[in-house]
């Protein structure tokens, strides 16, 4: 399953917008695309509004991002996570590592407050 990734900047924060299904097939590509972004910027927002499915491998990309950001004293905020994905993340313990917001704007506020 192909996914689309778009990178933009909002108030000097990198926003990565992902669309599609993140699974074992698409996760490595996504990881290769996003990890370098953390080289320049320690914090970023992942806009996941258009992500319809996230497998275990997808959640691990998120956690890897989180660990990388932490090592640079940064943070990762997730915006617009679908309810079912959020639920899976909660039950498996992934969710509590992230700042979670409904929209990119709210995510921005959260990151700026921190």
């Amino acid at each position: 399953m192909a996914i689309e990734v778009e990178v933009s900047t909002r108030d000097r924060v990198t926003v990565v917008t992902v669309a599609g299904e993140i699974d074992g097939g698409s996760a490595p590509g996504l990881q290769a695309r996003i990890l370098p972004l953390l080289q320049q910027d320690s914090s970023l927002i992942l806009d996941l509004r258009s992500v319809t499915y996230m497998s275990s491998a997808g959640l691990r990309v998120l956690l890897l991002l989180y660990r990388q950001a932490m090592s640079r004293n940064g943070r990762v905020a997730l915006a617009g996570v679908a309810e079912t994905i959020k639920d899976t993340m909660a039950v498996t313990g992934f969710l509590k590592f992230f700042a979670v917001a409904d929209t990119v704007d709210q995510a921005l506020t959260t990151l700026q407050q921190a």
Binding site: S55, T88, V91, F94
Partner: peptide, 12 residues
């Protein structure tokens, strides 16, 4: 596991 259908029982 609630996440059994997604194969995430180990994490859960």
């Amino acid at each position: 596991a609630a996440t059994g259908p997604f194969g995430m029982q180990v994490d859960e």
